[in-house]
Design a binder for these strands. Structure first.
Length: 565
RNA sequence: GCGCUUGUGGCUCAAUGGAUAGAGCAUCAGACUUCGGAUCUGAGGGUUAGAGGUUCGAGUCCUCUCAGGCGUACCA
């Protein structure tokens, strides 16, 4: 339910009745319980425009406010705040409706938007490392979220299967006379060796650059070797996605190489539009007020990632017909995307009304605030990190004796992976993220385990009760009132998180929901003796809606819930 | 040098331009014949890096300073 929209509508009606014209101003959640459920601060903002003092405007508004259905009370406070209370009867009824609804009252968008979410994007020359974690889970969450809200989501895994590093690998391969199948671990070491040669030997580096052009021109021998790398590497990625419950499949793969045939056309079209300029033998676009040009073709004829990104942008906006394109990529590439997005629009590759957003995220750091590395300074393989998470999660299971080994495995997987994901998703994605096992596997604070515990505790109520949950909600307690308001605000939170591409808004909400329910439950017994049947039912319905909302929210984050832990 | 970005209690983080800046961890003090105490209640702890400015109102917007991170054309 779009709770705020309903309230905004009532306010808007009051303005119309009062004969005041203004641009819409939305209510916001009250900052304190004594200020009601929502507050309207628009009177202050309108004061200058209308030439009246804000309290006067607020008084006029309040006179015309419908306080009979959704709202039950309105008060003016301070310089002209209007504090609003929701009608408990209406709240109760709406929560009942939500509890019976499979979508919990969350509406699907009337006008779905076609959205491309570009995320994960591992490099095929190497194994996935922790650097891919954030993109993979933030991107997957955004895709889940937008899809749930009714958008038509197209996931795109822009895997790095092309570029100079492959020239390097193939040049090294030839030098080593190595052919045939290469195991994954070998590939990792192989990359390191090749890189070592590349950095140390200028002649080799030049050869590698030549080979880039060679694969780009379709040399059969090179291509065959190249495909081996891709097959092995993609298989590894799928193993990681499976462990992570990230919903990327082969169908979502649009590799860099997918755009190969289009690259020369991109350059030609830029030339045709008079945007291209040769600089030191390279083809560049110099954007106004930009110090560094966008280079689309190197002096040796090879293309660059800007070229591929331009081709991908055109494909996504044109062929796929996306109206919003999200790039879930490390914040360090902000400069690149700023330029490429701008150029894509100036060159007419992407229509002006298509939203291009770089969903940037910060670097993953260790406890000491240093970039996350292994003890010897190497990159941490993602698969190792996930396996460690599952192992550590086993230790958090309290009563291991009551489970079979299989159950413990299943539980540990859900808990461990969930903890890794929740910890990441629960912070503002733009700041650097400090990775801390102890914190993420704690039962205290805004953690996955606290959420799991809260959920399991509600499920345990239902196990004890073991009957049909059918009845009416009767709000008789301030905490109960707040709980209902919070529950009905679910859709507003999801929408806002979707607009801002900010999963941490969902986790904040879920944590608030869980703690509020715990407090409510502490003070309002459900199954204890002496609780009247009607009250018991009312609280069971509320508990059920709370649990369902938690489950749905966690599922959007790609986290499963368990009924007991 | 230039550009982007961050700076909020001891620590990790919140906060559409709105009221007295909120949580959690840690610390201290409480509640238990547990509807799962892996819980709940309470307390202390802040000049939102600093200085100006815009505004009825600034952690939030603008300018400058300081500090950190990142980027800075033939890698992606």
């Amino acid at each position: 339910m779009k709770l705020k929209s309903h309230i905004n509508h009532i306010i808007q009606e009051a303005f119309v009745k009062a004969g005041i014209e203004h641009e819409a101003i939305s209510v916001s959640e009250s900052t304190k319980a004594e200020f009601g459920d929502f507050q309207f601060n628009g009177a202050m903002a309108l004061s200058k425009k209308l030439g009246k003092n804000p309290r006067e405007i607020a008084e006029t508004l309040i006179k015309h406010l419908d306080l009979d259905t959704i709202l039950s009370k309105a008060e003016i406070a301070g310089p002209g705040f209007i504090n609003l209370w929701l009608n408990p009867l209406w709240l109760a009824l709406q929560c009942e409706v939500a509890q019976k609804d499979a979508r919990l009252g969350v509406e699907k968008r009337a006008a779905p938007m076609k959205v491309v979410v570009d995320y994960s994007g591992p490099n095929m020359a190497k194994q996935m490392h922790v650097g891919h974690l954030r993109s993979s889970i933030i991107g997957d969450t955004l895709a889940n979220l937008l899809s749930y809200l009714g958008d038509e989501v197209i996931r795109q895994n822009h895997i790095g299967d092309w570029g100079t590093q492959f020239g390097m690998l193939i040049a090294y391969l030839e030098e080593m006379h190595k052919e045939g199948s290469v195991s994954l671990k070998d590939l990792e070491q192989f990359y390191k060796d090749a890189k070592g040669r590349f950095d140390a030997d200028e002649a080799f580096a030049n050869k590698a650059r030549e080979y880039v052009v060679k694969i780009q021109s379709g040399d059969a021998h090179c291509l065959a070797l190249w495909q081996q790398f891709i097959a092995i590497s993609l298989g590894h990625c799928e193993e990681v996605y499976d462990k992570l419950s990230v919903k990327l499949t082969r169908d979502d793969v649009r590799a860099e190489s997918f755009y190969n045939d289009d690259l020369s056309r991109v350059v030609r079209d830029l030339y045709g539009k008079g945007l291209l300029k040769e600089s030191d033998g390279a083809q560049c676009v110099f954007l106004e007020d930009e110090e560094i040009p966008v280079m689309v073709q190197k002096s040796d004829g090879g293309y660059l990632y800007a070229t591929t990104d331009l081709a991908a942008l055109r494909y996504r906006a044109g062929t796929l017909g996306a109206k919003r394109i999200l790039y879930v990529v490390d914040a360090r590439q902000a400069g690149h995307f700023k330029q490429v997005f701008r150029l894509a629009k100036e060159a007419g590759f992407v229509p002006g009304d298509v939203a291009l957003e770089h969903v940037a995220f910060g670097t993953m750091m260790d406890k000491g605030g240093k970039p996350f590395k292994t003890r010897d300074g190497g990159t941490v393989k993602l698969i190792d990190l996930l396996d460690e998470a599952v192992l550590k999660a086993q230790d958090t299971i309290k009563d291991k004796s009551s489970y079979t080994p299989e159950q413990i495995d299943a539980l540990a997987k859900i808990i461990g992976i969930g903890a890794v994901k929740y910890a990441d998703l629960s912070i503002n994605r733009e700041s650097n993220y400090i990775f801390n096992w102890d914190k993420m596997l704690s039962f205290e604070g805004n953690t996955s385990l606290y959420m799991q515990y809260a959920y399991a505790r509600i499920q345990s109520i239902f196990r004890r009760y073991d009957g049909a949950i059918e009845g009416h909600i009767m709000i008789s307690d301030p905490l109960e009132h707040r709980l209902c308001v919070l529950l009905l605000g679910f859709e507003d939170v999801l929408n806002r998180a979707a607009v801002d591409a900010a999963p941490n808004q969902i986790t904040s909400y879920l944590y608030e929901l869980a703690t509020l329910f715990m407090r409510f439950y502490e003070q309002n017994p459900i199954l204890k003796e002496g609780v009247k049947q009607e009250i018991k039912m009312s609280r069971l319905v509320l508990a059920d809606l709370t649990a369902k909302t938690m489950k749905q929210g966690l599922n959007l984050l790609g986290i499963e819930v368990v009924d007991a832990l």
